[in-house]
Computed example of a mutant assay.
Amino acid sequence: MDLNAFRLPRSAGKIGADDIYGVLIEAMATGVLREGDRFPAESQLAAHFRVAPMTLRQALGRLRDEEYIVTTRGRTGGTSVAMGIADRMEQEALGLEVSVEELRDLTDWRCGVSGAASFLAALRGTPAEREELRRLEEEFLRVIDSTTERRLADSLLHIHIAKMSGSRRLTTAEREIQDQLTRFIRVTSYPGMDLSHDDMSHRALVQAIVSGDAEAARRALEHHVEITYYWGTQQSHIVRGGDAR
């Protein structure tokens, strides 16, 4: 488990158990933590979050009580993410009600953050990072027919682009965006939409980043985001109230 993948809470005061709980929930929602993933030792986690062991135990205790994680005893025991967590989060997301105005606001935020990240990724990405981006695009297409796996693959691809930008702040913001997307617009189906179509895949975006065309990368990202917004507004069982703009 790469502890650097966890966003440290931005808190004006002392980091508390609720902050750590939120970070770990976000990691599960965005696919950074997947079912069966084992946690490192509590002492290592506490040191990473710069909190007392008791504070960490309170956060883990809440996750355990809510059945997001499980702990086993014995020589091979430890704490790991509960099985079926992705399906559970999907069902929880389906119960949320989100207004069109909220989705529009999230889309505008995404255009600003993800657009800048895509622009910089095209300029700063290393050959190894570009190769990984191609692999993530292939993975997205491989799982495109699976609602849960598709959402996780999409999230990991966009977070990787943010990492390619070289900006920790953009990466942190992208993780927050992907968490919101996972909770707000994960849906079972998109009526009348071909998910393999260029509008919903990442072909143009990946091609622009790999070729180093920063402006084209930003435009491709913004187009992709607006298409996602449009289809999100069609989900009447999730998006309620207001009119699409």
Rank of each mutant, 00 (worst) to 15 (best):
L106Q: 07
P191V: 04
H160A: 09
L3H: 00
R150K: 12
Y21K: 05
V239S: 00
A216P: 03
A41W: 00
A12E: 07
A217R: 03
G212W: 09
D243W: 11
G31W: 10
A128H: 07
G125D: 11
R110F: 08
E42M: 08
H237F: 09
I20T: 08
A82D: 00
A121E: 07
A121G: 05
F119C: 00
L94Y: 15
T107W: 00
T188N: 14
S43D: 08
G192R: 05
R7H: 13
H160W: 09
E139D: 06
Q178R: 14
H158T: 11
V81S: 02
R168F: 03
T182S: 15
E226M: 08
A59S: 15
A46Y: 04
E174G: 02
I159V: 10
A46S: 14
Q180G: 03
Y229I: 08
L106D: 02
R218M: 05
A12Y: 13
G74V: 00
Y229H: 03
A122P: 11
I209V: 09
I177L: 14
A93K: 03
A41D: 12
S118Q: 05
G166M: 03
P9V: 12
R240W: 00
T107Q: 03
D87Q: 13
Q58T: 11
P53M: 05
E138L: 05
G74A: 08
A59K: 13
I161C: 05
T147H: 04
A5E: 15
V98S: 06
I159E: 09
E222F: 05
G112T: 14
S189P: 05
T72Q: 11
L221R: 09
A216V: 04
L94G: 13
I15C: 06
E222M: 07
R183V: 11
A116E: 14
G232Y: 03
A121T: 07
V23K: 10
R218P: 02
L120S: 03
G22I: 02
L103I: 06
T72A: 09
I144R: 11
G16Y: 09
I144H: 08
M89E: 13
I69V: 15
L123I: 15
T228Y: 04
P53R: 04
R62K: 14
T228F: 10
E102V: 01
R57D: 04
E101M: 10
V113H: 11
S99G: 12
G22W: 00
A93E: 04
D18Q: 12
F49T: 04
A220G: 02
L205G: 09
L157Q: 13
G36E: 00
E26Q: 02
R142A: 03
R124S: 06
F119L: 10
A116L: 09
A162S: 10
L123G: 04
S201Y: 03
